[in-house]
Simulated assay, not measured.
Amino acid sequence: MNEALLEVRDISVSFDGFKAINALSFSIAEGELRAIIGPNGAGKTTFMDIVTGKTKPDAGEVIWGEKNVSLLKRQESQIARLGVGRKFQKPTVFEEQTVYENLLMALDNDRSPFAVLFYRHNENDNQRIAALAEEIGLQDHLEKRSGDLSHGQKQWLEIGMLLAQEPRLLLVDEPAAGMTLEERQKTVDLLRRAAQTRAVVVVEHDMDFVRNLDCRVTVLHEGSVLAEGSLDHVTENQDVIGVYLGR
């Protein structure tokens, strides 16, 4: 296992007296594919909110990278620039723009006002977009209006837009929701490919989808880690069966 890219240490946060995260600790390695499962209210979304800077915890620490940077001292935009990308459950693409234009806007180029004002895309950008489109399976849809894509294709486009920013960690929230069986399998393949060059954390309810990811699984319950290991290992855990699988 590679060294930790992200470490969550004894994180706790409460909302109106409800403890959404309770002394949560675990780590994600560089280049790791990890699935996070758990019942509603287990703290999965709050965990991602804390890592991306949307929510500040009451206690604990979030450490990033080999330089041990504290993410809790960074704003959302700064965390994104450090290399943390997040995909929400509902796809958010620019529907009036083509697939090509969406990917072009997402490329990891200079974002300063002067650079943006005088930016002109070049052959290198075209090559990067072509490679991204092939990675997400949309190479035949580059000139298609994004609003005309299927739900699954929009999900892939948004993942491609995040990959265009070259994140070191990609957080993906319930990518299988609303997809056909064929789209789910293509999404599994896409996420597994993405994890070859970066860490990918997938929050998901669909157990067949998680099984196909074939990765380490973390089970959350009441804001803490209940079990961790392979899917077979955690689904045989009696505590997991009692609070999640056996509902």
Rank of each mutant, 00 (worst) to 15 (best):
T235D: 06
G147Y: 09
Q238I: 12
L213P: 04
G60W: 02
A130S: 15
S150P: 03
D189M: 11
F209K: 09
F26S: 10
G85S: 10
V116N: 10
N68G: 04
Y100D: 07
G83P: 00
K44Y: 03
Q153L: 00
V13S: 03
M105W: 06
D49F: 03
T46L: 07
A59N: 12
G60K: 04
L82V: 00
E123M: 10
L169N: 01
N237I: 05
A194H: 14
I21H: 12
L170E: 03
S12K: 07
L190G: 04
A177F: 02
I159T: 05
K44G: 00
V243H: 11
V172H: 13
R168H: 12
N68A: 15
A35Q: 08
E158H: 00
F18M: 11
D110F: 00
K186E: 11
I36P: 06
S27E: 15
A115P: 02
A23I: 04
G242S: 09
L107W: 02
E66A: 14
N212L: 14
K73E: 14
L104S: 03
F118S: 11
G31K: 15
K144N: 08
V13P: 03
S12W: 08
A23P: 02
A20K: 10
K87C: 12
V234Y: 14
V201G: 14
T187C: 05
Q155D: 04
L33G: 13
I136R: 02
Q127W: 01
W156V: 03
A80F: 05
E3P: 05
R198Y: 02
V240K: 05
A130R: 11
G152I: 09
L138E: 06
V8T: 09
N122P: 03
K154S: 05
R128E: 14
R74D: 01
H121W: 10
G53H: 10
A164H: 01
M179N: 04
N22H: 14
T218P: 03
V225I: 09
V217R: 08
L190E: 02
S230Q: 08
D10H: 15
F15G: 00
E3M: 12
S146M: 12
E76I: 15
N2K: 12
K19S: 07
D10T: 12
W156A: 15
V62S: 02
A80R: 06
T180D: 00
E183M: 08
N2M: 14
R216P: 10
I36M: 13
V210W: 14
S70N: 15
G160E: 08
W156D: 07
S14E: 14
N22G: 07
P39F: 05
A176K: 06
Y119S: 11
S14T: 10
L171K: 09
D110E: 01
N40L: 08
D140E: 14
D110H: 00
D10M: 06
I37S: 06
V234C: 12
G41P: 07
M48Q: 09
S146H: 05
L149D: 01
E61G: 07
Q238E: 11
Q97V: 07
L190T: 02
